[in-house]
Simulated scan of single mutants.
Amino acid sequence: MNANARSMTVDEAKIRSQIHSFSVFADQGAFDYLGRVFAPQLTVDYSDLFGTEVQRIERRALLQQWAGFLPGFDATLHELSNLVVTVTGDKARARAEFIARHWLGETGFWSVSGDYEFGLIKAEQHWQISSIRLIRKAEQGSRDILATVPQHARQNWLEREARKITD
């Protein structure tokens, strides 16, 4: 075993797991699990990407927004790299480079890359994301696909849910 394997603290490992879960659960449409990584109230800042206002939102409302949108794609892949975590008591900051790819049909594709900045808080022994800021660096493909995605979200989600193993 590498001597550096132990140099990560338990808190840093928990934070890294939450950050990676954020992207994996979103790609899988696992919104019930995705809710576990967020604080009850959080700040979401996608103003650099969409020009929208920074939102202070309840996690349930955020998950409802995402559930009405993300499953509308045929596939998404949010890849994170170069994750840096700084812990200060019961608060933490994390920054990661990302590429978020989105497919719709045979020709619909949109990708955005940049940095995510996360704020986290510790609630009991669990770390929760309390803020997300997306910093856009580049885009490929066309945002045009975003307009039709919500039309497919419910049906795609139902089809994916039907494949769950529940017993």
Rank of each mutant, 00 (worst) to 15 (best):
S7Q: 14
K164N: 09
R36V: 00
L62M: 14
A3M: 02
A94N: 00
G68C: 04
N156G: 06
E58W: 10
G89S: 10
G119M: 03
D167I: 14
S111R: 13
F25R: 06
S81N: 14
F73Q: 00
Y46Q: 02
A39W: 10
F109R: 02
H126T: 15
V10G: 05
V10E: 14
R6H: 10
L83S: 12
S23P: 03
N2H: 15
R93T: 10
E79R: 15
T52V: 13
A75N: 14
Y116N: 12
I165Q: 14
R6G: 08
R163I: 04
P71A: 06
L134M: 13
D11S: 12
A153C: 07
F69S: 08
I121C: 10
E58F: 05
V37S: 03
A75C: 11
R154I: 04
V37C: 05
W157Y: 06
L80C: 03
Y33E: 14
L146F: 08
A30V: 12
L34V: 05
A13Q: 09
E139A: 01
Y116L: 09
A75E: 11
A162F: 08
G108P: 09
A3E: 14
Q55P: 02
V10I: 15
D74P: 01
G141W: 01
D90L: 04
V44L: 12
W103P: 04
F31V: 08
V149G: 01
G35L: 02
P40Q: 00
W66M: 15
I129T: 09
H126N: 15
R59L: 08
S17E: 14
R133A: 05
I121D: 00
Y33C: 11
A30N: 13
S131V: 09
E12R: 03
F109P: 12
H102K: 02
L62Q: 13
L49Q: 07
R163E: 11
K14N: 10
S17R: 13
T9I: 04
N4H: 00
T86R: 05
A39F: 01
E106I: 04
A153D: 01
R6I: 11
R101E: 11
S21E: 14
R93V: 11
T88C: 07
D144K: 12
L70V: 11
R36K: 13
V44E: 03
L42G: 05
V112F: 06
R6A: 10
L104D: 09
R143E: 07
R36D: 15
K122G: 02
L70A: 03
A26Q: 13
F118P: 03
V37H: 01
L83G: 12
R16F: 04
D115Q: 11
T107S: 07
H78E: 13
A162N: 07
I132L: 13
Y116S: 07
V24A: 08
G89Y: 08
L70D: 10
G68Q: 09
I129F: 00
D144I: 01
R6K: 12
A67M: 06
H102L: 01
G68H: 05
P150K: 07
N156Q: 07
G35C: 07
V87P: 00
G119F: 02
K14C: 10
L120P: 00
T166E: 11
L104T: 12
L49T: 05
